[in-house]
Design a protein around this nucleic acid. Structure first.
Lengths: 178, 178
DNA sequence: TGATTTTTAGGACATTTGTCCCAACCGGCA
DNA sequence: TGCCGGTTGGGACAAATGTCCTAAAAATCA
């Protein structure tokens, strides 16, 4: 990605897998909307571990938080598959947000939805057995036909790979009250 | 709280402690902005356990998610202390959101901020030792001068009261890599 | 005040999860 | 082909957490 001032305010970009669109703690220049492909969005803490916030796909927006709050990236976003995105210059995004009420409304709804999801996930992660979350996750992934490594899966579930393997075995999950 | 159709579109309300402003899975009628006091916002899952999403205080907004997404309450909000809130009729809130760009901007920022917080907390909760989160939480609470029950604390940390007690003892925390 | 309920504390034991470690497998690559 | 580095699978043991349960202390109420 170049610093080139000639970058258009809005453009379509194609990225290969494993490319970073947003870097945690670094300034962002654009907001992206995913047209195709899957990205993972994760936070790395000082202790080296990483927590996967979410996997985002078609129709999802990236970098709005940073644009709206005028902060550096709060997470790193990396493509898992080749992706196609609409890149919107940050300043222009904000402009759009103010002047186009339909766009504003759409962003508002996307954020509200994501907020609800994040909160619900945090809760589920604490309140339910991993087996539950795991089953759900696997279903979603399966639908998407995307392949993740065990490391990503366990990262998303917030557990070690070892634990994930145990769960996958399904030996004795049904212990909990559920 | 009455069903009275004569409720003003916007009004100041005073509530005692332990009152519910929003009920999970029920329709909401208003959006609230806290003027004073502290509320807790929690999700109760089918298995009876509750997970505290956050404690909100002065200046925070409640019920916007439900208003924007037109869904039932995604969490229950209950006053921990006596609170004073500005109650805004849901329909009017949406109206304001569309017509008043400053208000729109403010809501957008509040949501962005909350999204960031929620995500960061979820991450911290997975990546750090409880002792870490606990210490941080205690510091915040202390600063606010509010008293929470152990149950609330543990609910917020996503652990059982028993575990919280053990942590408070501080017997052998320093085991982890940190 | 006395009774009742809530909150706090913590023992004992069962589960779960993490850490460490090793072996098998797989896909580049010289 | 043979040598990696990365992923996968799982054993073993330690640490963390949950569940169940009992008691005392504190708060609430008649």
């Amino acid at each position: 990605m170049s610093d080139d001032a000639s970058m258009a305010a809005i453009a379509i970009q194609e990225l290969p897998a494993r490319k970073r669109l947003i870097q945690q703690d670094k300034n962002t220049r654009s907001v992206y909307i995913i047209r195709k492909g899957v990205v993972k969005c994760f936070i790395a803490e000082e202790n080296g571990k990483e927590y996967i916030l979410e996997f985002l796909g078609e129709g999802e927006i990236l970098g709005e938080l940073e644009a709206i709050r005028k902060t550096t990236g709060m997470a790193t976003v990396e493509s898992l598959t080749p992706v196609s995105v609409v890149r919107i210059d940050k300043a222009w995004f904000l402009q759009l947000l103010m002047e186009n009420s339909a766009f504003n409304r759409a962003v508002l709804e996307l954020m509200a939805g994501r907020l609800a999801n994040t909160a619900i996930r945090a809760s589920r992660q604490q309140l339910y057995t991993l087996s539950y979350s795991l089953a759900q996750l696997l279903a979603v992934l399966d639908a998407g036909g995307v392949i993740f490594t065990k490391k990503d899966l366990s990262g998303y579930l917030g557990i070690s790979v070892r634990s994930l393997n145990r769960l996958l075995k399904g030996s004795k999950n049904a212990t909990f009250t559920k």
